[in-house]
Design a protein around this nucleic acid. Sequence first.
RNA 1: GCCCCCAUAGCUCAGUGGAUAGAGCAACUGUUUCCUAAACAGUAGGUCGCAUGUUCGAGUCAUGCUGGGGGCACCA
Length: 611
Amino acid sequence: MNLKGIEKLVAEAVENLRRRGDLATDIAPVVGRTKSEEHGDFTTNFAMVAAKAERKRPRDIAALLAVELSGHADIEAAEVAGPGFVNLRVRGDAWVRGIDEALAAGESFGRLPSTGGAPINVEFVSANPTGPLHVGHGRGAVVGDALVRLLRAAGREVTAEYYWNDRGAQVRELGRSVWIRVHEQLHGKLPVVEGENWYRGDYVKDLARDAAADARFAAEVGNGPAGGAAAGLVALGPDDPRFVDYGCERMKMSIIATLARLRVAFEHQTSERAIAADVEPFFLELESRSLAYRDAGAIFLRIEGREGEDKDRVVRKSDGEWTYFATDLLYHANKLDRGFGRLINIWGADHHGYIPRMRAGLAALGRDPKALEVLLVQMVNLTAGGQPVKMSKRSGDFVTLDELVDEVGVDATRYMFLTRRHDSQLDFDIELAKKKSLDNPVFYAQYGHARLCAILRRGAELLDAGRVPESSRALLAEGLGRTSGRATIPPGALGLVEERKIARALLALPDQVAEAAEAREPHRIVYFVQELSQAFQRYYTERWKRHADPVLPPARLEDPGLAAWNWERTAARLRWIRAIRAAVRGALDIAGVQAPERMEWSEDGDREDEA
RNA sequence: GCCCCCAUAGCUCAGUGGAUAGAGCAACUGUUUCCUAAACAGUAGGUCGCAUGUUCGAGUCAUGCUGGGGGCACCA
């Protein structure tokens, strides 16, 4: 029984009271999950909300509602509590049904049916194709990708999109940088050039080295003057647009490859150059409608006073070049034209000042500025064992995303980036992320899954080795999911408070997905895994330690102990463990983190293999 | 000066307007006949930065203040 089901039930109860004249209000009740088990499974504050309008005491209204609800088949108890809550406890076998439903959903547990409605566009990373992605881009990439996965799980139609700023001063600098390095490789020293803004990173040297092999330079390379291919390229001069094209193309491929490693993929890529082709008629048309105007040779868009924007902004500079803002605004209008109802952009926090400008721009075009949602991702501080790792971009000597992934792996990178809300700063401890031990949260979460798998594996081995009495074999097979449909495991076989608590937690996944998607907060899914995993570990250890009540019989137990074993309870627990595993898998899948069946432990561990 | 984000346990951080504010790490005290003890339990630790307001009810919403980070171009 999920939140929606209960909500419907409470709404019906309120409607009944209304029909009978016990209530007059038309306030719709809101239902929530309780924080604490003592308060039951679900709760509604309806009585307190309605008290004023009804001119009754909250507890009196609550009492009416409780009586109305307690008659329902799925409700074990409806109690008035505190200042006027109605707490609901769902019948035990309703949880068992919930587990069955979760298992029936299998791989898709946690995924919600399509909500319909206009598709959502999530644009993220969108780093300039002028250099490799750095660690900060990585966080944006992972948060964006996890959000895409989350929204899809919540039943939304989503397009993940990358916008390439492959036009303008930055990429011209890249082109120049390639030429500079070609020159250097030919003459053994850097040429004298104007400006200090060229890109000095080593990756440009690689581009320069490979340039001669690129098809677009074939003529120069083939017919070049004495000195060979490089001389032909140098002769073109630093501002030949082919260096820009070549550099951009190579960097795009490299960036996409880095993201692919991180399991980040895009359905759609838009090039600023393509947008720029339409920019002139677009803004001239706006000018003709007085939405834009000329001043001192530049064209300004009238946006002052809209959406908190404090001045009109330039779309075409006096030198005739269209600004980044001009193409970006047109691009956003295009996205809306493509049918997206919502444009979610993930930006670095340092771009926050740009939000009012973009919203105001959309408003000036007569578009709904609220269609644009911007998630600001705060900065990442890399640390190693608590000590800050230096990241200097100016020298071109910064830590790249590829280097980070090389160092700690894809799963750890993704998981760590999802351990904080996107709008709070993140300390990423490389040493911790690498550690193959349980104080590493990534490792802990994956270990939790592997442990669930190990229990199920051992259960299967027990059955296959013929150590389960004939009379209980069918029962255990069902617990392991080998038969379908025949409910031979009695509902009462799983009845411990801890088991029920964990069932309650795992069955909340669909609600968690819906809420996290609505809030655009993928990190909640990571917390879900962490908490569920931890709850199970606690249960598992305590069952044995404190109660001598393991899920499976101890390895050395032989007959007659095995014959007397409570196989019914074991079967029920195995089925329940499969449901926990389904929830962990579903959640890790949204995070884009793998759920391994076995863990690889570090080699220097002193633990002996148990064969 | 204006704008954005943040402020919760020693540290790093969770916490859809609900009831006694939580987790991890660190500290201390314990738990091995085992299914991975590479695990788990318990204890201690809090003026939710400060103030006012809205509300039946505020860590959560509003306003002001303090402190930290970031941003305020005919840059991208």
